[in-house]
């Protein structure tokens, strides 16, 4: 490992944001992974005799339902844990897809320039004319609802986030003489991109990926909130908020619990991305734009 890479890694591991965000993300991931064993109840199981129970520490709460129950008497904690699975599944898969699509297009556009760059640039222009939420709604009406459709929609929308930022970084790297030197050493274009350009933009890609996971979690929550993601009885955080919103007066915890879960998860990815941005000095990233 080069001393530069080692120093960077040390900087990452010393940054409190990276540590804090990383640990929080690991915690959420662990809870999601072991949800079936950790959850006290089946997330679908209804107990119509004990609906809208408050959390166990509040007056009238029951130990069987640590965070209380919803309108149908389902265990909020269990639904929260199972909701984490959906949130992380969407976060990881959608961010990976958007990263792959956006990075490849950015490398091609920034490296070759010319008409390819022009064409990809205009495509980004068209995409940027949409507020992301609007495009997501339109895509999901067209493709039909469902978690995987949500993932596809996020990939199809958010590739531009990667493409825009990484392209401008590729343009910077492209001007470095070592890229010219690689060509003079007989490297093909593909060799040059993979061996010389890509490693230089990797820190930026990692940073954006972390931030994108947070964005994807939010988009999934929005879409399940308006009923375009999972089936209405599946435990997803957005569904839980939508369900509990009607009884917000009597049972505010039904809303607060999933809001906190979203907050913690997105915060974890943002902290991680933010810390990585500082440690990797990927200056071009301006954190999240609104999804």
């Amino acid at each position: 490992m080069s001393p530069r890479a080692r120093a960077t890694l040390q900087r990452c591991l010393r940054d409190p944001r990276v540590i804090g965000g990383g640990l929080l993300a690991l915690l959420v991931a662990g809870l999601a992974l072991f949800a079936p064993w950790l959850a006290p109840h089946d997330p679908q199981e209804q107990d119509l005799l004990s609906t809208l129970l408050p959390p166990m520490w509040a007056a009238g709460g029951e130990a069987a339902y640590p965070l209380g129950t919803d309108t149908l008497g389902r265990c909020i904690l269990s639904r929260l844990l199972h909701g984490a699975r959906i949130a992380l599944y969407v976060g990881v898969v959608a961010a990976t897809g958007a990263m792959l699509l956006g990075t490849v297009l950015a490398l091609v556009a920034g490296y070759f320039g010319g008409w390819i760059d022009w064409a990809i640039g205009r495509l980004v222009d068209v995409w940027m004319a949409f507020p992301p939420v609007i495009l997501a709604l339109i895509l999901l009406v067209g493709m039909g609802a469902g978690v995987n459709k949500v993932i596809l929609a996020i990939v199809l929308i958010d590739w531009t986030r990667f493409c825009r930022v990484i392209r401008s970084e590729v343009l910077v790297v492209r001007r470095r003489d070592y890229v010219a030197a690689a060509r003079l050493a007989g490297f093909t274009h593909v060799q040059t991109i993979v061996k010389e350009v890509l490693p230089a933009v990797t820190p930026l890609v990692i940073t954006l990926f972390s931030l994108e996971m947070g964005i994807a979690v939010i988009v999934e929550a929005i879409m399940s909130f308006v009923g375009l993601s999972v089936e209405p009885d599946v435990a997803a955080w957005g569904v839980m908020i939508a369900d509990a919103r009607t009884t917000m007066n009597q049972a505010p915890w039904g809303v607060i619990a999933p809001v906190l879960a979203i907050f913690a998860t997105v915060l974890a990815f943002n902290l991680l991305g933010d810390g990585l941005r500082r440690a990797l000095d990927a200056r071009l990233v301006t954190s999240r734009g609104e999804a």
Partner: peptide, 19 residues
């Protein structure tokens, strides 16, 4: 600018052989 900071000297001076 001309030396890729991620390559050690050996892999810089013999970069041609890599291609």
């Amino acid at each position: 600018s001309a030396l890729n900071p991620r390559r050690p000297v050996e892999r810089l001076v013999t970069q041609v052989m890599e291609a």
